[in-house]
Amino acid sequence: MTGAKWRWGFLDLVVIVFALIPVLWIASLSFKTPATITDGDFIPREWTLENYRNIFNTDQFVRALVNSIGIGLISTLVAVVLGTMAAYAIARLDFPGKKLLIGISLLIAMFPQVSLVSPLFEIERSIGLFDTWPGLILPYITFGLPLAIYTLSAFFRQIPWDLEKAAKMDGATQGEAFRRVIAPLAAPGVFTTAILVFIFCWNDFLFAISLTSTERSRTVPAALSFFQGASQFEDPTGAISAAAVIITIPIILFVLFFQRRIVSGLTSGAVKG
């Protein structure tokens, strides 16, 4: 028995090391001083917060961070609201066209995003959305929606809807039944979906570099590739690393606190869809 435990423990360790090394490495780089940054050591010899101080002093990064957060939150909010409505209909109502909607969202989930880049580039330029927040929010909502619809309809199907009847029998109005019984049960699913959609928006790179051209709406992943460090002649490695660590923090927090939910959201949405 203990032998088996050691074996599993070893396998766990392999997975954990494999998963963490690139993250620890970029974190390590971000704490290195300019002098030691090219020494190739995995653990910094001299620790410094200089890189962080520098990036927060550049408008380039702060602006991008604001863009990333704002665009991510708005896209998530809209996608989750629209997705919740559609998923409720899919899980609970019977209407023609339901299959079609599921089919469309599946198609979009598999859509090659680069195929949208050229027409969107041209369309957004002609209607003035290019290099604006809405210009990124729109495609993010579009690609976030299939994810939201799948995950949420799987969640909604698991809600015991008998409870709605029970609440009505207990004297609740339709509104009370929803507010006091259904909503508390649906909330975790909606929350998990919001996390997944936000991660998607937070991650995107292709739309971010194609549909923006200035700091006005460039998000952090896109800004990273334009990074030149505090001054033009400085090696940007430290700055890039520090910025990378900053935008990894929310992901780490989500994963740490909501591991169980993210796992169940991803698996139920993708397999049982």
Binding site: A166, K168, M169, A172
Partner: peptide, 9 residues
Amino acid sequence: APRDRDIAM
């Protein structure tokens, strides 16, 4: 409505 019938289930 069910709530106005005063029956339990």
